[in-house]
Simulated assay, not measured.
Amino acid sequence: MSVPHPGGDPNANLYAQLKRDVLDRVPQITAVEYVPDDVEAKQLRAIFDPARLDPPTGPESPELTVKWYRQDPHDWFRINYTDPNTGFHAGWHQDEDHPDLGHTHFQYSSPNTEDRWGITFEHETPSLILWEIVEELLEHVRATYQDANEEP
Rank of each mutant, 00 (worst) to 15 (best):
A31F: 06
A46I: 09
D38K: 13
D72F: 12
A31Q: 14
E33A: 14
P59L: 02
P59A: 05
G87Q: 03
I47G: 00
I29N: 09
Q71V: 01
Q43R: 15
I79V: 15
L64V: 08
T82P: 00
V32W: 13
G58D: 02
E40W: 10
P62T: 07
F77T: 01
V39I: 14
P59F: 03
D54W: 04
E40H: 15
R25Q: 15
T86W: 03
Q43E: 13
D54A: 13
E33Y: 04
D83C: 12
Q71F: 09
P59N: 01
L23C: 07
R70V: 15
F48S: 02
P56Y: 08
T65F: 06
A46D: 13
H74K: 07
S61N: 15
D75P: 10
R52Q: 14
N85T: 03
V35K: 09
Y34T: 00
P27K: 10
T82D: 14
V32A: 11
P27W: 12
A31V: 01
S61Y: 07
D38E: 15
D83N: 14
A31Y: 06
D49K: 01
V35N: 04
Y81M: 04
V22D: 07
E40N: 15
R78N: 14
Y34W: 04
R70Q: 14
S61L: 01
V66L: 09
V66K: 07
D37R: 09
N85A: 02
Y34L: 00
A31K: 14
E40S: 13
D83I: 02
D37H: 10
D54I: 11
D75S: 13
D37A: 08
I79Y: 11
E63F: 08
Y81P: 00
W68D: 06
D37W: 10
